[in-house]
Structure formats: C-alpha cells, structure tokens
C-alpha cells in the first residue's frame, strides 16, 4: 500500500471495518492537531524534553553532582553554557538530568490522580444515593482545602522526598477529576446503550468498567493535559519550599530555591531553572489546548 493510498484509506468516507473507522478518526484528529502550529510547538518541545531525559547522561557535559568549589557561581561561558551553581556544579548538566525528575513527577501524578478521580467519580455517579452523597462530600472536603497547604501537610506528615511529593500532589489533584467523571457518568447512565447492555445481563461492575469508563476517559485526558503544567508548577513549589526532591537531586524548583540566595549577584543560578520550568509548562499548556480541540470538540475552542 503506498503512502497516498494509505491516507485515502484512513480518510475514507465509508470505512470497511471498525478498525479502519477508528484509525481514521485518530488520523483526522492528528490532522486537526497538526494544523495547530502552537500545539505542534508544544509537542515538539515535549518530545525534545523526553529525548533529553532519555539521553541525559550522553547529553550532559558533566555529572550533575560533580562539585568544584573553586569554580562556583561562574557566569555562563563556553565551559559552562548556563554557568555554575553555589557548589560549582554545571547548571546545564543539572537541568538536563532534572528533566528526568520533572517527567517522573508529571507522569506519575498524571497516572495516579485521574485514576483515583475516575474511580470515585464514576462510582458516585453510577451508584447514586448515599454512596454518591458520601463520596461527593469527601470530594468537597478535599476541594475546600487550600491545595498547596494540603500538599505541604501531606509531605510534612510523610517526610520530604520526591516520592512523597508525587503522592501528595496526586492526593490533592484528584477531586476535579472525580467531579468531571461523575458529571459524565450522570449523562451516560441513562443512555439507551447502557439500558441495552443491562438487558443483556451485564453486571454493575461490568457496566462500569466496560461501558462507562471508556466514555469518560477522553474528557479526562483533555483535563490531564491541561493540568500537567499546574502539576509541574506545584511540584516546583514544593521543591522550592524544600519539601520535594532532596539534595543533591537536580529538581528544578529546588534549584530555584538554591539560587534564591544568590539572586542579586548571580541571577543565572535561579533564572535558568525558572526558564526551564516556564518552557516545559508552556509546552504542556499548548499541547493541552491542541488536544482539547481534537478530543473535545464540543468544549470551548479557545
């Protein structure tokens, strides 16, 4: 099959198989997405970020931990493209290795929080009655909490570490997903196809897993993509307060916190990780906007 005919096959008005239809829909979405230049920019940045994380040891000019007290607080130069920090470590190398931590945090939170939210939201919406009441009350309680303070409290309770920071962020991030999933469930619950499946003898659990979850997923994905930037910023905030990644890990928020001491004379120490955070969270925002256009066309196209 040539490239042209594959494209035609994908865009066919009359798909022959279910698989063709599904692939066709994805391809259509990709075309829409590709047309959005900013979203593509976001995607490219993120692909580069992932590549950077994978090949960090190869890309980084130095070890992110190698100290050289004689060479501390050097401005950007040909030897150290982004300068050195207070312990004489190469900032560029630390940023490159730090991308792994950022991806780890974002990836893990983005996996945990929506899953908790999906579970609680759909169960609440599907079961209704007092189960709904109780679950939504719990959701409200967590929503009413000041988010960063709740995360702080969790980390303080569990002990500061990158794993606990991730856990704390996930525990504070799920309520909006639960709300969203519940709302979706309420609209789906009484749909004809659910009734049909029920008539065919499908159990409640089966209905939930096979029929309701898949329909909630796409709106959750959009939501997750839009939240990624927020997660990065929250994680950086925790790192900034010394409650995230522990030294000598090159977490970007912690690097800003380190550089804060030197900000008046050695601006690059805090500025470089700040720019890195900004770039990556912007990329996630761009990607999120693009994804929303594709996956959630009925939503706000901004």
């Amino acid at each position: 099959m040539s490239a042209v005919s594959r494209r035609e096959w994908l865009l066919s008005d009359a798909p022959q198989t279910r698989r063709q239809a599904r692939l066709g829909a994805i391809y259509q979405g990709w075309l829409t997405f590709r047309g959005n230049k900013l979203a593509m920019l976001g995607l490219i940045i993120l692909v580069l970020l992932i590549a950077m994380a994978i090949f960090a040891p190869l890309l980084a000019p130095q070890s992110p931990y190698a100290q050289n007290l004689a060479d501390r607080l050097q401005p950007p130069s040909s030897a150290h493209w982004l300068g050195t920090d207070a312990l004489g470590r190469d900032i560029l190398s630390r940023l490159i290795h730090g991308s792994r931590i950022t991806l780890f945090i974002v990836g893990t939170v983005a996996l945990i929080a929506p899953v908790i939210g999906l579970f609680i939201g759909t169960v609440a919406g599907f079961a209704g009655g007092w189960v709904d009441q109780v679950l939504m009350r719990i959701t409200d309680i967590f929503l009413a909490f000041p988010k960063l303070i709740l995360a702080l409290a969790f980390v303080a309770a569990l002990g500061p570490s990158i794993g606990n920071a991730v856990l704390a962020l996930a525990l504070t991030a799920w309520p909006p997903y639960a709300r969203l999933a519940r709302a979706e469930t309420l609209t789906i619950r009484n749909a004809d196809f659910i009734a049909a499946a029920r008539l065919q003898g499908a159990g409640r659990l089966r209905l939930l897993i096979r029929h309701i979850w898949p329909l909630c997923v796409s709106s959750l994905i959009v939501r997750v993509a839009l939240d990624m930037a927020g997660i990065i910023l929250s994680a950086a905030g925790l790192g900034f307060l010394g409650l995230g990644a522990q030294p000598p890990l090159p977490e970007w928020g912690a690097m800003i916190s380190d550089g804060r001491t030197y900000i008046l004379d050695y601006w690059w120490v805090a500025a470089m990780p700040g720019i890195a955070i900004f770039t990556v969270s912007m990329a996630f925002n761009l990607l999120g906007d693009g994804l929303r256009d594709v996956l959630d066309p009925k939503g706000d196209k901004s």
Binding site: Y65, A66, Q67, L69, A86, L87, P247, P248, D258, T261
Partner: peptide, 12 residues
C-alpha cells in the same frame, strides 16, 4: 542553606 551545602560537600 549552610547545613545542606556542608552535607553535600561531605557527600562528595
């Protein structure tokens, strides 16, 4: 700050 820096230097 100082303690962390001392600790990291010792670590190295």
């Amino acid at each position: 700050r100082e303690y962390i820096d001392v600790a990291q230097t010792l670590q190295a």
